[in-house]
Amino acid sequence: MRINKQNNLNFSSNASLIKNFKRAAGEGFAKIDDIGEGVNITLDFLGKAVLVPATIMLVSKEEKEKKEYSALKNPVAATLQLLMEVPILMYGSKLIEKLANKGKLDKEGSNFSYNEKAAKEGFTTALQEAAKKDETLKTKSVELIERLNKKGLNSNLKDAFQDSFEKLPEETSKALKKSLENYDTTHKRLYHLQNRVCFVAAIVLTPLLCAAEDFLFPKVMKLLKGEKTPPKGQSRVQISLQNFKSQVAKGDLKC
């Protein structure tokens, strides 16, 4: 009887744990808003810096020293790659945002705008105008605009704005929702444009990035392991056929 009681308790605590996990997972994934090149770069880095060394250490049957060297090589290459790709994405995105917010990316006569600043101003002005006539909205809008200025627009904040429009007269609510939708669409347009332009930039700069990686990689490895720097032009191409096979198998080859 005592054992049954204990089992029932364990079962119910496990069930509630799973329930909580599912709820947390759901809430977490629902919060994911802007997914772009940043996620791709992060996953590529994690794969090379964590998954490959872990696989080598667990699966490879080579000698310990060789295994450790291979496991170290990948995080170093991944870090170098990350240090070169992140600035392209960061500064490229900032440049495009600057151009877009000055209206330099919008074509005259076209209603397809990338000017997020103007869209945000249009929405906040409309909200503040509406707030003058409604006390509840007045307090709420100050709080929400503060959140908007701090964290930028996301799906949670968009929901909070929309909830605050619910009790307003139909016409005002409709106009504010339209203005918010316009702001959200412009924000997303700019985000996707930044991602695609930075992708094109990364492709165009690939030869340069590979050359920089080939130049820096032996130097960093030398610093870390006291390894002798290979002669110029021999970093990858002069490997033996056997060596090549094992490098392919571990995903060790670099540009």
């Binding site: 994934f29 629902a30 994911i32 997914i35 996620v39 791709n40 590529d44 696989t55």
Partner: peptide, 27 residues
């Protein structure tokens, strides 16, 4: 539920392809 499914779809696809497929299946 729809928002969570949307986020999960993108993340799981990218994790599956760029982490597991590229780093484990390809080698």
């Amino acid at each position: 539920f729809k928002q969570a499914s949307k986020g999960f779809s993108v993340v799981s696809t990218l994790v599956g392809a760029t982490l597991f497929a590229k780093r484990i299946i390809v080698p």
